[in-house]
Amino acid sequence: MNEESILLRKTMGSLYTYIIIFGIYIIYNGHLTPGGGFQGGAILASVFIIHYLVTYSKTLRSATLTNLEKVIYVALVVFAIVLIFYLNPYASLSTKRVYLIIMNGLIGIKVSCGLTVVFYRFIFFESR
């Protein structure tokens, strides 16, 4: 499995950007069309997996991604609590729409970080 497949590299290398754009589209249009943060985040995590399968590179700092995930989770909780439990009766409709977009984006980044860390841990997992 350690040699690179040229078929995989060419195909996935051309599909790379489209998958990123598709994931961002799903996250950004989560409040209008089916989809949302979790689904888009999973698609963005699959980009990292394709990056591993194409290049077999092991240069990824998973500690940074973990810290990013924790910070984003705290931001998510604070944002949701402030806007839903305190400001919900006073907020206008456009404010709520912005809230949905930002929450979807935060959840997307968090889920993609989490799934990438899980996948790279399974890759580098010291077997036996």
Partner: peptide, 20 residues
Amino acid sequence: TGALNSVTGIYLNYRVFDTL
């Protein structure tokens, strides 16, 4: 909620605790 997709409206506004 201001959402056109009812699923997003439910899981980010009515049911935020579930999502968190």
